[in-house]
Simulated scan of single mutants.
Amino acid sequence: MSVARACTFSELEQDSPLRVELEGVPICIVKDSAGEVHAIGDTCTHGNISLSEGFVEDDTVECWAHGSRFSLRTGAPLNLPAYEPVPVYAVTIDGDDVLIDPNVTKEI
């Protein structure tokens, strides 16, 4: 297991995605409107678009290019044109550090 520091909790703005790359894996980190931190794959499965450039509402992120929304909890696409999920990563908060293992996806 190779847990890595992705960012600090204080860097995260509510409903504002942050893109990080850990061990070559692009990850979209979001602190949702409830204050919960999520980490999903940053690339929309419909097109090669960064989800961290998208829009957050509740516990979803919307790809700005074609409007597909993804669940921040499960990675599942909630509407077309995307039909494949994005990976979801476990997040650990240790003090002010946000820790993620980019090699292990959560079982949903």
Rank of each mutant, 00 (worst) to 15 (best):
M1C: 09
S2A: 12
V3Y: 12
R5N: 15
A6F: 07
A6L: 02
C7I: 03
C7D: 12
F9P: 00
F9N: 12
S10H: 05
E11G: 01
E13P: 00
Q14V: 15
L18K: 09
R19D: 07
V20W: 01
E21T: 14
L22F: 04
L22E: 12
G24E: 11
P26C: 09
P26N: 05
I27C: 02
I27R: 01
I27A: 00
C28S: 11
C28N: 03
C28T: 13
V30R: 03
S33V: 10
S33I: 05
S33E: 11
A34D: 15
V37T: 14
V37E: 02
A39F: 02
C44E: 13
C44G: 06
H46Q: 12
H46C: 10
G47L: 14
N48K: 04
S52L: 00
E53Y: 02
G54H: 06
F55N: 14
F55D: 15
V56A: 03
E57W: 13
E57D: 15
E57T: 05
E57M: 08
D59Q: 10
D59Y: 00
D59A: 10
D59V: 04
V61C: 01
E62T: 14
C63V: 07
C63R: 01
C63W: 14
A65E: 13
G67M: 09
F70H: 04
F70T: 10
S71T: 11
S71C: 14
L72A: 07
L72N: 09
T74W: 02
A76N: 13
A76F: 10
A76Y: 07
L78E: 12
L78S: 09
L78Y: 04
N79M: 13
A82F: 09
E84M: 10
P85T: 07
V86L: 04
V86G: 06
P87T: 03
V88W: 04
Y89Q: 09
Y89T: 08
A90N: 15
T92I: 07
I93A: 13
D94E: 15
D94W: 03
G95L: 09
D96G: 08
D96M: 06
D96T: 12
D97E: 14
L99I: 07
I100R: 06
D101A: 09
T105R: 09
